Simulated scan of single mutants.
Amino acid sequence: MDIAYCIICHKNTNILRTTIEILWQGIHVDKKANIEDFYEYTDKVHFMEERIDITWVSFSQIQATLLVLKEVAKKTYDYVCLLSGDCLPLKNSDEISEFLIKHKGKEFIGIQKKTDANELENNIKFEHSNLYLKRYKSVLESIKFKIQRHVGSPKINPGYKSLPSLYKGANWFCLGGELCNYILKYLQENSWYSAAFEKSFCGDEVFFQTIIMNSKYSDKIYNYNGGYDDNHIPLRYIDWNSGPEYPKILAEEDFINIKAVENQDCIFARKFMKI
């Protein structure tokens, strides 16, 4: 079983160090980060030469993911697993390989069964300004942002009407190599699709799900009808309920829940304290 583990990160931490020690694979370092901070991994991972300046909830998240998919497409892999620098493997590489062999043919990407239709539509239907996408705003920017939201009508995304039915879910996945190649081919043949997401909000939670669920691969989603949420379907343990942070910053005491029977097929967990 050939598996490509692709990590998108912006900071070198002990969590990232542990993940690489367990998996040894490829890494995309945010363009804002100092690449030299990651040189300790030179003999273990492949660094993406092209780097994206990733900003919160923007199209740059999609761009970085597409970069790694194009890179791994140069070889043949059974599965491509997308991770963040806050992810930690819960199984070793042999155990992960055994699990994926057992479920080969399934696709592990989060798909929400119930979504807020208005929120989902608005995130893609309208063009969002750079100020809208800025996570931390100054007082002056916050005032300007409120004025923009309440005065005038938002500009409609011209590509919205061409989009198929929208689906949403967590943006971390383990996809079969065949499906990854299908996605890249689809985008090559339908350049309008990417353009329709360029000014979206949280488009990375919709972009890949929508392609997949409107394709022949829609019936291959792992445990889609098994009561799993959109974090568990892609084999992730992520606590969106306990707080005080959302998702919760996991610590040693959380491993009691992580190791519970109902989570035995989670092969990664996030997110952990950056140390």
Results as ranks from 00 to 15, higher is better:
Ile3Val: 14
Ala4Tyr: 01
Ile8Ser: 09
His10Met: 03
Thr13Ser: 15
Leu16Thr: 05
Thr18Met: 06
Thr18Cys: 04
Ala33His: 11
Tyr41Cys: 00
Thr42Arg: 12
Val45Leu: 03
Ile52Ala: 05
Thr55Trp: 07
Gln63Ile: 08
Leu66His: 02
Leu67Asn: 09
Leu69Val: 03
Val72Leu: 05
Tyr77Glu: 04
Leu82Tyr: 13
Leu83Phe: 11
Leu88Gly: 02
Leu90Ile: 07
Lys91Cys: 03
Asp94Ile: 03
Ile96Phe: 01
Glu98Asp: 07
Ile111Thr: 12
Thr115Phe: 00
Glu121Met: 08
Asn122Tyr: 11
Ser129Pro: 01
Lys137Glu: 00
Ile147His: 09
Arg149Thr: 04
His150Gly: 09
Pro154Phe: 02
Pro158Trp: 08
Leu163Thr: 07
Ser165Pro: 15
Ser165Leu: 15
Ala170Thr: 04
Asn171Gln: 13
Asn171Tyr: 07
Gly177His: 02
Cys180Pro: 09
Ile183Lys: 08
Gln188Ala: 08
Trp192Thr: 06
Phe197Pro: 06
Cys202Tyr: 09
Ser218Trp: 10
Lys220Gly: 01
Tyr222Glu: 06
Tyr222Met: 03
Tyr224Asp: 01
Ile233Cys: 04
Pro234Val: 12
Leu235Ile: 13
Ile238Ser: 10
Asn241Arg: 15
Lys259Ala: 07
Phe272Ile: 04
